[in-house]
Design a protein around this nucleic acid. Structure first.
Length: 274
DNA sequence: AACTATACCTGCAAGC
DNA sequence: TGCTTGCAGGTATAGT
């Protein structure tokens, strides 16, 4: 489900439900996610703490609580967060449950368990946690020349570079495909082969696609109960992702699908020349 | 150093 | 119908 836009939509939806609330207890299914879940530490540290903010870094949600403690949550491929009445029945794959002081609870559901939960106690720990995470695509750092430098010595596919979270944060398979189509750049082009003109075309398009996707509520069905958590509908705007053999919206040529670094990659053979 | 394959896990749809 | 196979929005890590 979640690339940067989906995580951002979830963040905005959760904020009013969490801000100012106090955690009263924590429960877990006991199953590990991608990493072991620090359930004992959360049970010990979190009850009594007030939630202050919900922010996002790359595809991670960072929930800051009093006492300088942060809860970091990654949703992997299938993760979702929602706030439910404590009386609502647990669903299959509800793996974590943070009880709030208003008879509601934040629940993490993740069927494939590729997500993760971490408890960070200090600024230093958070800094260390994100040490290898690239800059946010909306930051000033992420200029065309930044990408040009990042790609300078890389022969790997441009699409793989865009999806490398150590280079730039938050870009996953859907938006990498969409941005490259918009910029008319073949996803398999060596990163080092893009010239300045192409980067100057690609970077603003990448940003505007991410912004549009956030405005559409993301590309997936999200089922949290809060008002701003309606299903996303950006998938209606997909120009290329998942459209194998369908006509290109620009020229009508059937869209091709190839595998790049193990990920499905779609392109128009006419609009995106090798 | 750069890059690719693989592993992690479950659910679903397509094909036989 | 029921089985098998392939595929899925991510990312750390082992291996070339």
């Amino acid at each position: 489900m979640p690339e940067l836009p989906e995580v951002e939509v979830i963040r905005r939806g959760l904020l009013p439900y969490l801000k100012g609330r106090t955690i009263t207890d924590v429960h877990g299914s006991g199953k590990p996610l991608r990493h072991p879940v620090p359930l004992a530490a959360m049970k010990k540290k979190l009850p009594g703490l007030t939630l202050l903010t919900v922010s996002r870094r790359a595809k991670y949600l960072v929930i800051r609580a009093s006492a300088g403690i942060r809860l970091v949550i990654h949703l992997g491929m299938t993760g979702n967060l929602g706030v439910f009445p404590a009386s609502a029945g647990m669903r299959p794959h509800d793996h974590l449950c943070w009880q709030l002081d208003n008879t509601m609870e934040l629940r993490l559901n993740d069927s494939r368990r590729f997500g993760g939960v971490w408890l960070l106690l200090t600024d230093k720990e958070e800094k260390e946690f994100f040490r290898n995470t690239g800059p946010e695509p909306f930051s000033r750092v992420c200029s065309p020349s930044f990408f040009m430098d990042a790609g300078r010595h890389r022969r790997q596919a441009i699409k793989t570079l865009l999806m490398d979270g150590r280079v730039v944060a938050g870009i996953g398979n859907i938006y990498a495909n969409e941005a490259l189509f918009a910029a008319r750049i073949h996803p398999g082009r060596p990163a080092c082969s893009l010239n300045e003109r192409e980067w100057k075309r690609l970077v603003p398009l990448l940003r505007s696609i991410l912004i549009q996707a956030i405005a559409c509520g993301g590309s997936t069905i999200s089922d949290f109960i809060n008002a701003s958590g309606n299903s996303g509908y950006f998938q209606m705007n997909f120009q290329i992702y998942g459209r194998q053999n369908q006509p290109c919206h620009t020229c009508g040529t059937p869209i091709a699908k190839i595998v790049i670094s193990g990920r499905a990659s779609y392109f128009c053979p006419h609009c995106q020349k090798e």
